[in-house]
Design a protein around this nucleic acid. Sequence first.
DNA 1: CACACTTGTTAAAGCGCTTTAAGGATACCC
DNA 2: GGGTATCCTTAAAGCGCTTTAACAAGTGTG
Lengths: 338, 338
Amino acid sequence: MPSTRSSRPRLADVAARAGVSTATASLVLRGRPGPGRRARQAVLDASHELGYRADRSASLLARRRTQLLGVSMDVRSPFHAELIEEIHAAADGLGYDVVVSPLTRTHDERRVVETLLDSRCEALLLLAPGLSAAQLTDLAQDRPVVAVGRPVTAPGVDVVRVADDRGVALAVEHLVALGHRDIAFVDGPSGTISTLRRSGYRRAVRRLVGPDAVHVVPGGATEDKGAAAVSLLRGRPVSAAIAFNDRCALGVLDGLRRDGRSVPGDISLVGYDDTPLARLGTIDLTSVSQTPGEMGAAAVRAAVERLEGARSHDVEVLLEPVLVVRGSTGPPPNRTMP
Amino acid sequence: MPSTRSSRPRLADVAARAGVSTATASLVLRGRPGPGRRARQAVLDASHELGYRADRSASLLARRRTQLLGVSMDVRSPFHAELIEEIHAAADGLGYDVVVSPLTRTHDERRVVETLLDSRCEALLLLAPGLSAAQLTDLAQDRPVVAVGRPVTAPGVDVVRVADDRGVALAVEHLVALGHRDIAFVDGPSGTISTLRRSGYRRAVRRLVGPDAVHVVPGGATEDKGAAAVSLLRGRPVSAAIAFNDRCALGVLDGLRRDGRSVPGDISLVGYDDTPLARLGTIDLTSVSQTPGEMGAAAVRAAVERLEGARSHDVEVLLEPVLVVRGSTGPPPNRTMP
DNA sequence: CACACTTGTTAAAGCGCTTTAAGGATACCC
DNA sequence: GGGTATCCTTAAAGCGCTTTAACAAGTGTG
């Protein structure tokens, strides 16, 4: 009996209209081999005429595999937004679907993970997870877990991140190539990431300029910390600065301008993260990109490899950052380009 | 038989362990009346010991109502991010759950809506939908549809938005109260929203200053348009400007500073949207907020009213904007506060 | 023409939960 | 002690789809 309710058509309705069983209809609609030309066409027509769409809950429930990847994200982060796009696209290409659950005031990471698991996803991609290594390992007991963008050592958990030290080194190389020799680093907040970036800076400057050229000033992750760092930049002749991230760089930029120093005329400036902020016409900041495209693809790949049994050992995917050159860097003053 | 698979525990496992039927277990776990103290406690204990979590697909499938609200969002928009937070919180409070599907390069609005419908959500909250009025009306045939933040006239569709003209009027009132009389409006791109904001400006200025004080200069929605508008501001003595939105305001701000004019010393500036950008320490822009908290709550309320049969006619919820005063506005130069 | 093979199709058994109608206790009253 | 109202509890029937195993029907063989 075709459903008389005004609700959406059921698979049974399509099958009835096509004059076949629901089994055949199901096979056809998912492009599985089996049904012959006649049946196939009939089902397709019927489905189209009825405007049929499979009920996802029912499919998921009946299917062994769900082919669903659960992604947690900080809904406020533009970087996560970019990652989501890329993850979506990459998953699509591999026949997986994505369910995202945003971290909000009312839904902390634990709750988000639960929501994700409740929707039967087969793997978890956690963007910059705040969970402890132990919690992550625990989660990874029952399904693949990929930590994206956070350097964490948790057995069983795959990690996809960008080489922070290499990113800062790129910035140094760029500035040195422009002729700079007095390059300062405005440090970030204490933590793994700052440490990696700072040591990347140290090593690159030592190598390319000399051991005495290292000049790290305290800063932070926000504009005000960057602005505050500007006064510390006066102690030594500095023709360029690399900031911990774009927000910090923005503070530095603003502080410099208030001081009457022009960027990049008097001083060149490099940020980190390549946020939309950096791309704004009025800011136009040279910045190090974490290549969200690569990260998203790598994260999906890591999860799918595990799911399809192609790998059972942990992996850490270390991606190469890319320097995006914009208007905030140029040759140092009192010098001409070679 | 308790499931021997290593998978998560089933309801049947909990029931078995508690020594009751799955029916009782289900009732207890959803806090429904019926089961007595003993059974209740036994189920709760068993569930806890097993770490049981209900499978969402199965619940949804079995339940009549899904109590699910589908939300589409532009994953890049910080404003949408705020809305999502608020919607989530509001829905939570009314016993509804939210499934969000982000608009991305690979998933346009049509596809997002389909995804949402496939997950059995009972109503659609579309943030700034791009669909035509006809398409929206069509969707609203089968379920409540709420258009959030876009003024659209589509029969059957509820609309929740902020009164754009009132927002600009607030800005004018604030500036006039500070003593300004020469207030320019940097216009936005052509469209409904610009029209509303512009006319709000016109009416407020006519009323509070005089018919000749109206001064609209062409602008746009982005920084470069704002910066370009600065030169047009020189023709007339202007002590304050209201920009179409924050991004445009940012351009104006930058242009003014380049001209050597200080904000708010020489000229006061007001933006629109109260984006995180406006809150940055170095920008500190007075701006009109669209009150995402109110919008989210109103949108959820609109959907739930329809779902629970409390209303069957269309409704347009027009919210009052709020002016957030920051450092970019002050008294005009050569004047003392009264 | 009986035999094994394909190939196309379907009946029926779930997936894990909710819900309804019916069944068992228990207690209370006349 | 039988009747009945009150509580708890549960068996069983789905929710809409997928999948497996079995079954027709058609194709060649010996």
